Simulated scan of single mutants.
Amino acid sequence: MKKQIELTDDEFTKLAVAVAGLPFIRPTKWETDYLEDVMHTVLNFHIQEPVVINALNFFQLQVQRQQHINDHHQLKALLAKFPNDRNGNEAAAMFLWSNRHWTRIELLRRLLDFFESIGVTDQPSLHAWIKTATFEGDFKGKVKGLGIAVWEWLRIRCGIDALKPDVWVINFAKRVVGKRISEKVLVDTFGRISPLVGESLSTIDVTIWYYEKLAMATDDNPELRLIAWNMLKNELEAKLREEVLREFNWQLILDERQRLRFEQAGLMILPDRSLFGETVPGTTSASIRQSSWEKGLQLEMLIQHETSLPLPLFQKLQENLTEQHWEASNEPYFFASLDLQEDMKMTPPMTIAELAEWVTQLVRGAVKGLRRSPPSIKPQDNNPLL
């Protein structure tokens, strides 16, 4: 047996510190069924994510709902109709998943046979077995083609706190310590790190998955993001003192620095009175916000009034906003949003000068959203949104 390469104390420390510095996100809790877990086990590794999603959706909509294949025995009976060779398995893959991944049908047959041999044929029996089972003693070598990463993924799906040593975790550790670490050592190492950073293995797992997938360590600079937000605030304050918008007193409030690094956060833009004129009193607020980092730090602009607008005003406003690609609603209060088609992910090579030019373009779009005025509205209406 090939000896596992252990980490030195220095390497373990580097990895623990790198994990502690991650912008943690919480894993989603989902309701699953037995067949969904089985399908994930044989499909969701070493295949591109869109292919997996399409296959799972097809199985759920076309096989479970239309063909009423909803339990272990029905699935085995269906597979028995296809010869267990390449052509037969390819036909079965087309029937179950609308793809030609015939080797995954081979895995599916083996997995179902193994589960049946240990008395696992539904969700309760799967959960009961996996709670006390171990990889080394109960799964390793039992299903040819399924290893420890798939095992840990199945455990996660069954509600057990675990981390799957997939390519994302392997790459994260390799980048930090400078060498490839075996899957088994990774599982043991992260098990030691989890209590040190005060986060569950499942939280570490999903955070690393997004962090590596989005190349946050190499393609993002959160400190530059803080600079960008302050640039945006300062330049927007100056612009709001110009033209029709100077009739308002504006207060701009930037969220806390720590939130701006990775969380859903941004800039509140508060006028001293309603943006809809004296006939529509009340509080109006606007904001420019980034999505959280795992959602791409996408930017959007939001405008909200505490009440709904008079219908004629809303209809005229909605027509104008639609032309500018805004989405607007008027119940139970007025709300409009605009995807700015930009994000706050900061590539490290970007200079301050390049950043300033980008911020200027962003401010132009934001101000345009606050002061647009079609010819059908009289200037004295003092409605910069129209």
Rank of each mutant, 00 (worst) to 15 (best):
K2H: 07
L7I: 03
V17S: 08
V17Q: 12
A18N: 06
A20F: 01
G21F: 00
P23T: 06
F24R: 03
F45V: 06
I47D: 01
I47M: 03
V52F: 00
N54F: 05
A55G: 03
L56N: 02
H68Y: 14
D71A: 14
F82L: 03
P83F: 01
R86H: 15
R86F: 10
R86V: 10
N87Q: 14
A92Y: 05
H101S: 09
T103I: 09
R110S: 00
F115V: 04
A128V: 04
A128R: 04
W129D: 05
T132L: 08
T134A: 09
G141T: 04
V150E: 02
L154I: 15
L154N: 08
R157A: 14
V169D: 01
N171T: 06
V177E: 11
K179W: 02
R180K: 05
V185R: 11
I193A: 07
G198A: 09
L201H: 09
T203H: 10
V206E: 03
E212Y: 01
N221H: 11
L226P: 08
L226D: 02
I227G: 05
L232Y: 03
N234C: 01
L245Y: 07
Q251E: 11
I253R: 04
R257W: 12
R259N: 13
R273L: 14
F276G: 00
V280G: 04
T284V: 13
E294W: 13
L297K: 12
E306M: 13
T307C: 14
S308R: 07
L313S: 00
E319Y: 15
N320E: 05
H325P: 08
S329F: 05
Y333A: 03
F334W: 10
L340N: 06
T347Q: 12
E357I: 15
T360I: 06
R364T: 14
K368D: 06
S376V: 01
Q380Y: 02
N383A: 00
